[in-house]
Amino acid sequence: MVKVTESAAHRATSATIRSVEAIRVALPLKKPMLMAGVRIETAQNVLVRIEASDGTVGWGEATSAPTMTGEFAESIVAAVGHLTPLLTGQDVGSHAMLARRCQQAIQGNGGAKSAIDMALLDLTGRRAGVPVVDLLGGALRRSVTPMWLLGNSSADADIVEAVDKAKEGFAFFKLKVGVKALAEEVESMRRFRHELGEDVLLCADANMGFGVAQAQQFIRLSSDLGLLFLEQPVRADDLPGMRSLAATGAVPICADEGIAGAREVLAHDRMCATSGINLKLMKAGGPRAAMRVAALCEALGLSITVAGKIAESSISAASTLAVACAAPNVDWGLNLTHVYLAEDVVREPLRMTDGQFTCPRGAGNGVDVDESLVERYRVR
């Protein structure tokens, strides 16, 4: 007779979704950051907690992103509340169907959909004893190279910070451009390359800060610096401008603000307007939707960088890392944003080892939430 272990018996039993809770938190950053002209001192995030009838809990997360997805923390909470009746009382084993039902129930609201999808995957993985990456199809790579974002007011400050981070193991940096005089920014990048060396990976992100003529000049002046890519140099809706920049071939062009899901990827590809995309889970609508976008990019021959929004906790970072390990064409690395937080909400935040983030192999998303920290940073 085959003896069924307690854990196997637990996985074999069915369970329904008992409750869905959206929890607003304000997480402190290590230092203020300037993003799209907005000074950010705390991350205004929403955690989604889904509990099954057997007591198992899955967690997801989304970040307030009015300039990216049009969502505020309050609207994410409202959208999760609107979708909750589609989930409660349903069989956890129907998680894929439930995620799809939420995708189709409302327009937009990618952050809310993403947080729910993360929580469903985490819950399912914990009950089955398998990591989320396996639920996404399995890992194509065990680890991914992360980048560190630099956006100080001076080149000196960027270099000091980069040298410090290089000592921690970072060998990939993204510089914010499109905010200072063009000649000053190019000179700063030259200094950066000289100080950090040729082996360090370097890319630039303009966040739509250039006009086409400025971007062309930037590319011409920096074409010898070995940039991995230049991200969203012009307005998101300026596909002809993106096409003209991509046509130079001097620096690969990455689309970010212009990309949400498959429709935008196809539009950029038809216009030959990009060499790759910045794939964000909350824009795509969750890990599963992001994997579908990644598969499309592979078919079209587009590169991918996978990134979080500033600044997500290790809950979202773990899901982002799972997608980065499972998705094809991740040629442009990874940007996990929990590293910018002064305090996380999990017991053991994801940590870099030898310049890489390794995909968690624990059940679910592989990180354990400390609910006392959730309560500490809860917005009431």
Rank of each mutant, 00 (worst) to 15 (best):
V367F: 09
T358Y: 08
V345F: 00
L336Y: 00
N365F: 13
D368A: 11
N365V: 14
L373M: 13
A342D: 15
N365E: 12
L334G: 06
V339Q: 12
T337N: 13
V346D: 07
V346N: 03
L373D: 09
T353S: 14
H338W: 11
L373H: 08
V339I: 14
E343I: 07
E348C: 07
T353A: 14
V339D: 07
A342G: 13
A342C: 10
G355C: 09
D370M: 05
T337W: 02
E348V: 11
G355I: 11
V346Y: 03
Y340C: 06
H338E: 14
E371A: 07
A363W: 02
D354G: 05
R361F: 03
D344I: 04
D370L: 01
Q356L: 15
R347Q: 14
P349H: 09
L350Y: 04
D368M: 11
V345L: 06
V339E: 09
E348W: 04
V369T: 01
D368G: 07
E371L: 08
Q356R: 15
E371M: 07
D354A: 12
Q356W: 10
T358F: 10
V367H: 04
E375N: 15
V345A: 02
L334M: 03
L336G: 01
M352N: 02
N365D: 14
C359V: 15
P360H: 03
L350W: 00
R351G: 09
R347V: 14
G364Q: 08
G364D: 05
E371T: 14
D344H: 01
L373I: 10
V374H: 02
G366Y: 06
G362R: 04
P360A: 04
V374P: 10
C359N: 05
V345T: 08
L336W: 01
